[in-house]
Design a protein around this nucleic acid. Structure first.
Ligand SMILES: [Mn+2]
Ligand SMILES: [Mn+2]
Ligand SMILES: [Zn+2]
Ligand SMILES: [Zn+2]
Lengths: 151, 151
DNA sequence: TACTTATTGAGAATAATCCTTATTAAGGGA
DNA sequence: TCCCTTAATAAGGATTATTCTCAATAAGTA
């Protein structure tokens, strides 16, 4: 859960025999500049880059998102049915969690320092190398509670 | 996060104009009798029922899993790439969380009472009706740390 | 028992994600 | 700076988990 720059990303990639490409640099920048509370799906990111005139193929998008999630640079979130969302993975005080309405997918972020502490301790105890730690609350929002629509 | 019986499931379904079917009863029983630490995918459940000589169509399996997750009876877990897993949703002292290796998907369950408390408090504060609350730790297990295989 | 309509089963449809392959270009060494 | 090795990209096809459609069935209710 480190804070990455182009330089530190390059270093970590090269260390493993991998390469820093303009595509990877671009995608890292997008997420670094994404305002807190925003989350991008693969297709969101694809469209965003198209709009900015620096298109990247969908294959590369998917490969890069997976790579960066497995490196601990991005967090992979299940905020809605059917597809994943991503955001930058940052330590406290930016580290946060998600409260999600299972009916309308409205999502609220919240912070709680003890969660990351518990995650760190648990991973360490088992000898795991921590990448990300998230609490997900599935619930029904006030609006959906009032609506009579089924499930 | 209540403990369900056939009777209480029927009551809750009927209250909403829905019905208790043998298929729903069977699926609830499967999960109630599933030993802690076991998690079933839709296909796992389908095959299990086939083997027990009480087959249920895959459509119904998917519909029922989603229904029960949205009722708070089952927990929907993202333990591996590509498909969901389910387990019964129970309060303390059975309530637990998951530490997952992102490379080999090895999963360890752990308990921590303060997590559910935080979840309950956070949902309540926002006026959400709590269904489930889970902490997910993504990490790399000791074995995968030693292996030189990339990502 | 009879009626209404939620639910099932079967298979087709959808869509997110992954895979294949030719081409490009990053990194490291001379 | 130029070369070589090979990792990475782009494009489109393939895969597959999940949803949808619809005719047939059966749960709930009076
Ligand atoms: Mn977020
Ligand atoms: Mn479990
Ligand atoms: Zn809602
Ligand atoms: Zn592992």
């Amino acid at each position: 859960m480190a804070v990455y720059t182009s330089t530190s990303l390059k270093a970590e990639l090269n260390e493993r025999g991998w390469r820093l490409t303009p595509q990877r640099e671009t995608i890292l920048q997008i997420f670094q500049n994404l305002p807190e509370g925003n989350h991008l799906s693969a297709e969101d990111l694809y469209n965003l880059l198209q709009g900015q005139g620096q298109p990247i193929s969908l294959s590369t998008i998917y490969r890069t998102l997976k790579l960066m999630a497995r490196m601990g640079i991005l967090r992979e979130l299940e905020l809605a049915e059917g597809h994943k969302h991503y955001e930058i993975n940052q330590p406290a005080p930016h580290h946060h969690h998600h409260l999600i309405c299972v009916r309308c997918n409205k999502t609220i972020e919240f912070k709680n320092d003890s969660i990351l502490k518990t995650g760190t301790k648990t991973a360490q105890k088992e000898g795991y190398h921590l990448l990300d730690c998230q609490m997900i609350i599935h619930a029904i929002c006030p609006t959906c509670q009032r609506s009579l629509l089924p499930i």
